Simulated assay, not measured.
Amino acid sequence: MDIDAYLSRIDAERPDEPSLEALRELHRSHLETVPFENLSVHLPERIELTEKALFDKIVRRRRGGFCYELNGAFAALLRALGFEVTLLSARVFANENPGPPFDHLALRVDLDEPWLADVGFGRHARYPLRLNACEPQQDPEGEFLVLDAPDGDVDVLHDGKPVYRVERRARELADFVPACWWHATAPGKTFTRSLTCSLATATGRITLSGDRLIETVDGEQTERILAGDEILTAYRTHFGIELSEAPVLGSFPAPGPHPFPI
């Protein structure tokens, strides 16, 4: 882990020691510099869940990714800085029911108390959430609740709506490889039928969804359709992503052999 290179990538200072203040700043900085994106699915590019590969993609190639990539890389950075970090499996809610295990990767960071960190869910909490709190937690992105759920799990709610259910059992990055492969290759899944690149900003959010550029500033949203080279320019200007060609929706490869032993 080249800590200085990673900190430079997210425009953050090296903390003197692990602390809540440092975690909050690193969390916010990561969300405002590294986009949530699924471009690899449609270029296509191989998604490899190893710390070395994630560092190369996010830091050296200045790309983003989705939850397994973003939170996997952020966990490696936090550990290198001395934080105690645990990878957690989460089940994303759909139609008021939690989805399958390993649907999402979130992080537990233990300081004076456990904190839930998540820089890989798109629009979500700008700062870490208290994992053992039952009262509402205010954040620039809205109100969050972390509530007890069956089997010792916890539910995370955003503005009253269930977002995901988090298991407390510690996991390894390799545990998420099958789910990552499934999300990146299965026809009909969110990432194979949509093309998105989204980044939090100091005043809101900017998203490029296919050819639609959507900007939210202080609660006011504008949208326009891009054409031709405007798309590549938007990736470079708004997200710092240099591409030789624009991703094409639906160009993902057909599911091939599992990249993991059976």
Rank of each mutant, 00 (worst) to 15 (best):
P44A: 02
E32W: 05
H27K: 03
L70T: 07
P35K: 07
A75Q: 11
I58C: 09
E25N: 10
N95H: 14
V34T: 14
N38K: 12
G72E: 03
L39C: 14
R91I: 07
K52W: 00
R60F: 04
L31T: 01
L78C: 01
T50F: 00
G65F: 04
L78T: 01
V59C: 09
T33F: 09
L54N: 04
F83W: 00
L31A: 07
R60A: 02
R79P: 02
F55K: 00
L88C: 13
E84I: 01
T50E: 10
S89K: 13
A76M: 06
L23H: 10
A53N: 10
E48F: 00
A76S: 08
T33L: 02
H27D: 07
F36W: 12
A80T: 07
H30I: 01
F93Q: 04
A94W: 09
E84V: 12
L78P: 11
E25G: 04
L49C: 05
F74G: 07
L26I: 11
R28T: 07
I58T: 08
E69C: 00
L43M: 12
E45K: 14
G72L: 04
C67H: 10
E45M: 12
R63E: 05
L88K: 15
H30P: 10
L23E: 08
I47D: 08
G72S: 10
L54R: 08
L78D: 05
R63N: 08
F83V: 06
P35E: 14
R63K: 03
A73Y: 00
V92H: 11
H42P: 09
L81Q: 15
E45D: 10
G65D: 01
R91A: 12
K57P: 08
V41E: 11
C67R: 11
F93P: 03
D56T: 12
T33S: 14
R28P: 07
R63H: 09
L23Y: 13
E32R: 15
H42A: 01
L54G: 06
G82A: 02
S29C: 13
N71H: 04
N38F: 00
E37F: 04
E32Q: 15
G64P: 03
C67F: 03
A90Q: 13
I58L: 15
I47H: 03
L26F: 12
T86G: 01
G82M: 13
A73M: 08
I58H: 10
C67N: 10
